[in-house]
């Protein structure tokens, strides 16, 4: 029981790390980016290739995945995404679905359709007893890394100058521009960070979420749930939403495997109807 809870937390943390970039894209630029999962998938495949073909250490792969996806993110943002900020939501959806399809087919072409496996370092495999609860070491590792990242993100957002500029821009882009904040640069950097985090999450999640070419499609809804349920006005909203989703999904698949996913979608739809601005949104917020 507690093991499941813990697995759910680790799972939720991963979802959050991957989806947090999406929350910013949506909150800052009102851009519906359905291709966010493709960044996570790419991060995962980078790790798989580096580890399995070139024998690079797992610990080194994680920052590489982050940096690689951050660079890819900033390049795509500057070349393609930025042109669509003022486009209609339909155009954004079409564009990002197109990217998803391309990434799925490209990965299929280069890597094949099978599930990818990575061999975790020995110290991360197996289980450990903590306070009498059996806890997977790798999940513990993920939880710790993600928790550190969440704290770091929260601090970066609240304590740094960049963070306050970002929050101002999310709150009201026009006012922020009026205050002399370079929203376009703020956003490019944030997009890079968001893509990098997705890549990192994908790299760490390869073992838990599974990694195959359909990854961006399979998890698209999950990332969107995190963002829509959590709202885009805070970082704690998506974080709580991700934890809830993670626990619910793990528990659902364990206890009621027949209807697990169904319940998640049903709850999502009900939630969206009752609280279209997110579960944790301020009243009257966006």
């Amino acid at each position: 029981m507690l093991t499941i809870l813990f697995d759910g937390i680790a799972y939720g943390m991963l979802l959050f790390i991957i989806a947090v970039g999406l929350a910013i894209t949506l909150g800052l630029m009102n851009f519906i980016n359905l291709a966010h999962g493709a960044f996570a998938m790419a991060g995962g495949y980078i790790t798989v290739v580096l580890m399995n073909r070139y024998g690079v250490s797992f610990y080194l792969c994680l920052p590489i995945a982050f940096l690689a996806m951050a660079v890819v993110g900033v390049v795509l943002e500057r070349t393609l995404y930025r042109r669509l900020y003022s486009a209609s939501h339909l155009d954004q959806v079409l564009f990002s679905v197109g990217l998803v399809f391309m990434s799925v087919a490209a990965v299929q072409y280069f890597m094949g359709g099978q599930q990818q496996l990575i061999h975790l370092p020995p110290e991360l495999s197996g289980r450990t007893e903590i306070f009498g609860i059996g806890v997977g070491r790798y999940r513990l590792f993920i939880t710790i890394v993600c928790a550190v990242l969440v704290v770091a993100l929260q601090l970066a957002l609240t304590k740094t100058r960049f963070g306050s500029q970002l929050r101002a821009a999310v709150d009201d882009g026009r006012v922020a521009r009026g205050l002399g904040i370079n929203v376009s640069t703020v956003f490019a950097l944030t997009f890079a960070a968001g893509s990098g985090l997705a890549g990192l999450g994908g790299a760490m999640g390869a073992e838990i979420l599974g990694l195959d070419p359909n990854f961006p499609l399979k998890f698209m809804v999950y990332f969107l749930i995190v963002v829509t349920v959590g709202g885009t006005s805070t970082i704690t909203g998506p974080f709580l939403a991700a934890l809830l989703l993670g626990i619910a999904d793990v528990a659902g698949k364990y206890y009621v495997p027949e209807i697990g996913a169904f319940v998640i979608y049903a709850v999502m739809v009900i939630m969206l109807v009752l609280r279209p601005h997110g579960l944790f949104a301020r009243e009257g917020g966006r």
């Binding site: 197109g98 990434s103 072409y109």
Partner: peptide
């Protein structure tokens, strides 16, 4: 084929 659909969309 999916790649080409995606490209057409983009």
């Amino acid at each position: 084929w999916m790649f080409w659909i995606g490209l057409v969309l983009v």
